[in-house]
């Protein structure tokens, strides 16, 4: 009887402990998120056909399209914010995927690229060349890599939509419907 009571009691106490532990862990995660202690590993936004800068230049030449370059970096909080608040838009996704070859450059990375000119360059040096002094920086380019327009810092959906309109006007001279 005593043994049975002890066992039930231990199971009871154990369940309470597990429940408390689970609750505590959830609470801790929420608190850490609120306090911004969990890493923000910003990367290119999901659902977009981003490629490396050198591949983008090749594709742009073949498809005769301008290039949209996203300069980010590892742990870039404002990139994460822009991904969540602007690139999550279906309209932005459709427009940018259709109108541009999309390139993502980690402005601190030593990843090696080879440009159509034959020049070997790192992603960080691409950032230096296009003066990606902050992240995120978004640069619209011709297929030859000539900058057309640039956005610096956090962007909203309307910022990206109006930038697209402006770039398309520059390229085609007329307002897109």
């Amino acid at each position: 009887m005593t043994f049975e009571f002890d066992l039930v009691y231990l199971i009871y106490i154990g369940n309470i402990s597990l429940a408390c532990y689970a609750f505590f862990m959830r609470f801790l995660i929420v608190i850490l998120c609120c306090l911004n202690w969990l890493p923000v590993l910003a990367d290119k936004p999901a659902g977009y056909p981003f490629v490396t800068f050198d591949k983008a230049m090749q594709q742009a030449s073949v498809q005769n399209k301008p290039i949209f370059v996203y300069f980010g970096r590892y742990g870039c909080g404002y990139c994460d914010k822009t991904n969540k608040e602007a690139f999550s838009s279906q309209k932005v996704r459709e427009l940018y995927s259709k109108n541009y070859i999309l390139a993502y450059v980690d402005a601190e990375s030593g990843k090696r690229l080879r440009l159509p000119s034959g020049e070997r360059i790192t992603e960080r040096e691409v950032g230096t060349r296009y003066n990606a002094f902050a992240t995120p920086v978004f640069t619209f380019m011709t297929l030859n890599g000539e900058p057309l327009h640039r956005l610096v810092g956090v962007q909203r959906i309307e910022d990206l939509l109006s930038a697209d309109t402006e770039v398309q006007q520059k390229l085609h001279g007329t307002k897109k419907p």
């Binding site: 911004n36 742990g75 909080g77 404002y78 914010k81 402005a107 992240t135």
Partner: peptide, 8 residues
């Protein structure tokens, strides 16, 4: 800010 972990 709710975004941003550290500077580069």
């Amino acid at each position: 800010s709710a975004f941003g972990k550290g500077h580069g």
